[in-house]
């Protein structure tokens, strides 16, 4: 299985993602933002970081970079595109997934482990996953998911909510919402479910001695689903 991780100026989770993808069997290539064409890929990942120093709005400059036209075409033809953290911010700026990510409600950079609950397993990312609640890591300043009332109705009607912030038992309540996101939303899909944007970092949970193994569960399942 072939994957590509795009490196933008200011990306800083690109190498972590490369390590994670390779660990679980992907033949991964790093792709520079200024390239025109994506290599042949089964999965494209927009990694976390601070692309273009978060100038203007997080992800806005990266969404206009050269490689993105190729990524957008790949997504529109049904290719799997996953945006993590800053990658999620880039995805909303391209319009591939609806909504925006605002500054965290309490104006703090948040760096901690959180639990997320899967809402929908009818997609390549979570199909056959044997857990409904996963522990992932978040590290962001702008993760406060927001969309208009009409958009919220549309994403609910189309089952586009991928994961919610919750507690260990899977309770989705305001007190377990770290950043003020509408309805505790931590990640969403496009309508077709081939594009996934999420704030949590599964690539940081692939080693028991460092953090935890829920990322391993996610990546192992993902590669099996793509095969």
């Amino acid at each position: 299985m072939k994957s590509s991780v795009i490196t933008f100026p200011g990306s800083n989770c690109d190498r972590d993602m490369d390590v994670a993808l390779k660990k679980f069997g992907f033949n991964n290539k790093m792709v520079w933002h200024d390239d025109n064409e994506l290599p042949k890929s089964d999965l494209v990942v927009l990694p976390g970081g601070f692309s273009y120093g978060d100038y203007l709005r997080c992800g806005s400059m990266a969404s206009k970079s050269k490689i993105m036209q190729s990524v957008i075409n790949f997504a529109k033809s049904g290719g799997l595109v996953m945006g993590i953290c800053n990658g999620f911010q880039i995805l909303v700026e391209t319009g591939l997934v609806p909504g925006v990510l605002l500054r965290n409600k309490y104006l703090e950079f948040i760096c901690k482990n959180v639990f997320v609950k899967l809402d929908n397993k009818e997609n390549t990312y979570f199909k056959n996953l044997n857990k409904d609640i996963l522990e992932f890591h978040i590290a962001h300043n702008e993760g406060n998911y927001f969309c208009t009332k009409d958009q919220l109705k549309e994403i609910k009607d189309n089952n586009q909510i991928a994961i919610y912030y919750c507690n260990k038992e899977g309770k989705i309540e305001d007190q377990y919402n770290p950043n003020g996101s509408i309805k505790n939303i931590a990640g969403i899909f496009n309508k077709e479910k081939n594009v996934l944007g999420m704030m949590p970092h599964p690539e940081r949970m692939i080693d028991q001695s460092l953090s935890g193994e829920d990322g391993s569960i996610f990546f192992k399942n993902l590669i099996n689903n793509i095969k």
Partner: peptide
């Protein structure tokens, strides 16, 4: 196209 995000 760039300066504003018309969602917000």
């Amino acid at each position: 196209k760039l300066l504003a995000n018309l969602v917000i």
